[in-house]
Design a protein around this nucleic acid. Structure first.
Lengths: 225, 225
DNA sequence: CCCTTACGCTACGAGTCGTAGCGTAACTCA
DNA sequence: TGAGTTACGCTACGACTCGTAGCGTAAGGG
């Protein structure tokens, strides 16, 4: 499996990879998950169906990689100066990502499938979930430096908290878009951010809560990973 | 379409309906969504495949009805004495429902499919989503009577808020179970409830936050901290 | 130049889909 | 009781997708 193990022989065409993943996205947009067939993807990509099967064992794995590529292109955690602004921006960006016809729908279907397939679950985790969790941890560290969040004593509790926040943000946005089938407009993003920061009891106080408790933050210049 | 329009002729067998929905659940448990075929369901139910197609146009609609039946059996909003206890109980009950092998996975797949099918989306909405939203509204009304939540002046804003809470609760639990693929244990349920009620800024302080802006929260022992 | 691996192409059995046709069963109304 | 209507079980069918095998060819390395 190491790269050195494949020194000899004809190398795999990197261009074919790009063509296949691109064709997968296009097919997802046009046909959706259910009607997407590997034969169709192969035809769009201009490669033989057998080539596709040599690289991906199943439709699920192919789609995971295609979706993960989209996530990689559009996910980042910029510093917006305050925890509130960071969360709000993350909500809006995640929503924009999931509103694309090739991502949200396919992701749901793949995750549903992954419940019956351990290896697929690992692939989803490493390709998509873990990378997003890193962004949550990053944002929380920034907020801690700004003094918006208390220090975390117990590292295990900190990890639990980060996971919880991640599930809350990603899950709520996903549910809003997929299940409730309603858009994430700026007002909703603000309301949800308020809920997340100040809770049900505090969020009802309206816009007053948005006047955040941070006088001057933004020490960190958006360090990319 | 009115029930009186079907006065004449042989009536549809209600027992067949029950057998089919039951067989669908069983097939979902054994095979999962992807490998579930209508032919298999018909065989399990002891009915002809054609009978199945006469009642449900597609696999999706059948599964929606089967899942909705499970939800109807297990969803209720009992009064637990406080907003905190109500939310926590709802989280745990919803999690128990989604952890069943025949519900969560299938629901995800159907919702993914519904993005491309307007009529299916309506069916999901009326059969599952709207009924759950009613429970949220109910719980919030009770909390308002207890004085745990302020009065809602604007009814439109109140509806927005209820929708937001619903997306937050259902979405986060769904994401925890399906995407993160980790269990909803009592501790997580309590942590999440704290987050929902008091926000990120308050929840992080640990148990101290519970003695916050609410008469007295955190009745539930369950704490291993 | 030989070896190794990837690619394109064709063809195939297996399985599912959704429908049509037929005879029969159940229920209503005159 | 008999006619009309609708549902059911059964069989069979064409169309489609799946995933694989076999073959000859292309592209790199020792």
């Amino acid at each position: 499996m190491s790269p050195s193990a494949r020194r000899t022989g004809r190398p795999r065409s990197a261009e074919a990879d790009r063509a296949i993943l691109g064709a997968t996205r296009a097919a997802l947009v046009e046909l959706g998950w259910a009607k997407l067939t590997l034969g169709d993807v192969a035809a769009r990509a201009g490669v033989a169906k057998t080539t596709l099967y040599r690289r991906w064992a199943s439709k699920c794995e192919l789609v995971v990689d295609a979706v993960a590529a989209v996530f990689d292109e559009h996910l980042e955690a910029g510093d917006h100066g305050s925890l509130h602004a960071d969360v709000e921006a993350a909500v809006i960006r995640l929503a924009a990502l999931l509103e694309r016809p090739e991502t949200g729908t396919a992701l749901m279907a793949v995750i549903a499938e992954a419940m019956h397939d351990e290896s697929l679950r690992c692939r989803v985790r490493s390709a998509i979930v873990d990378r997003q969790k890193r962004l949550v941890t990053l944002g929380r560290e920034r907020a801690r430096l700004r003094g918006e969040l208390p220090r975390e004593e117990d590292p295990e509790a900190a990890a639990r908290n980060a996971d919880l926040i991640f599930d809350a943000v990603a899950g709520t946005v996903l549910h809003r878009l997929m299940v409730s089938a309603e858009p994430v407009d700026p007002r909703w993003a603000r309301d949800f951010t308020d809920l997340l920061l100040y809770g049900m009891t505090g969020a009802d106080t309206g816009g007053a809560a948005a006047a955040g408790p941070v006088p001057d933050g933004a020490q960190k210049p958006a360090g990319s990973v």
